[in-house]
Design a protein around this nucleic acid. Structure first.
Ligand SMILES: [Mn+2]
Ligand SMILES: [Mn+2]
Ligand SMILES: [Mn+2]
Ligand SMILES: [Mn+2]
Lengths: 152, 152
DNA sequence: TCTGATTTGTAGCCGTGGCTACAATTAAGC
DNA sequence: GCTTAATTGTAGCCACGGCTACAAATCAGA
């Protein structure tokens, strides 16, 4: 059998030209960046609902440090992608898909912070950097982090 | 004197409202994302010049996995920001500022990959994830990585 | 040399995610 | 209940970074 396609979660690049490999890496980073915003919103909305009982656009905007108009537009994108719904003046809600995403993202966020702290990064720096790093950590890397932290 | 402004490299958030803290983290991540492209270009151009003797827009585009038109527009931004110059059909060059950026970025890239591998991430996953992660690793975190790797 | 391939540049489109300004709606307080 | 404040939504602007299509310039080979 030729190549025997692997059935892993993250598709393999296959060893063709070496430059295509690099292109593939950049492409992955671009994709991750494109979903980063959705991930942060899902996590934040879930947090707000959990701690405040509701997630209003204004609060979301303030937490993210953007204008409410920007937040509303991004929320529109979340709805468009089937991750959220909203009732006027009743705040934003997550669909099952949105909830699932939020759970995954929250767990990943924590793991990344914990890993950073574990290798000696000061708590506050870990919190700051993790907010960006998290979106680029693959499942495979995440498993390695968990194992390193003794949570295999 | 009020507040006594701190003179650290990374400005401090100051402990005002707790929500402003979170906003600050998101803002940092957004800033990092905005410079990510410039960093990748600088590093790649430097690499190409080192290995091929020149960095032509077409080659840059192929390595990044984007169209040549996209690469040319991004190179225009590099020039605009004083990081690169270019002679027609003679390729792209880095200004001193660009060179400095490239060196910093390359060193950081390596450190990130090495850290990932050191905590058990498979080589290929480390290479892929590092391409995105690197742009969100602060100086402080980088120092922690170096120390962890025994290169303090 | 000159002709065809390669490279580079330009133009114009799109979606995203910022912003301000203004409008409309709802909530709160008197 | 009315008035005012807060919230939400809309409109319109911008820069960025993707893309395709086309044009121009350069390079290379016959
Ligand atoms: Mn984040
Ligand atoms: Mn997060
Ligand atoms: Mn990168
Ligand atoms: Mn890199």
């Amino acid at each position: 059998m030729p190549k025997s396609k692997s059935y892993k979660l993250d598709a393999e690049p296959a060893d063709l030209p070496p430059e295509a490999d690099q292109a593939h890496r950049f492409e992955k980073a671009r994709t991750a960046q494109a979903t980063a915003l959705l991930e942060d919103y899902a996590e934040l909305i879930s947090d707000l609902i959990g701690t405040e009982g509701e997630a209003r656009p204004t609060d979301i905007a303030r937490r993210l440090g953007v204008s409410h108009a920007t937040a509303i537009k991004s929320i529109a994108r979340l709805k468009r992608e089937g991750l959220a719904t909203s009732k006027l003046y009743r705040g934003v809600f997550l669909t099952p898909a949105g909830e699932m995403l939020a759970r995954r993202v929250r767990a990943r966020h924590r793991l990344v912070v914990d890993l950073l702290v574990a290798v000696g990064v000061p708590q506050e720096a870990a919190e700051v950097d993790a907010e960006g790093i998290e979106h680029h950590v693959s499942e495979e890397t995440l498993r390695a982090f968990a194992k390193f932290l003794g949570r295999a």
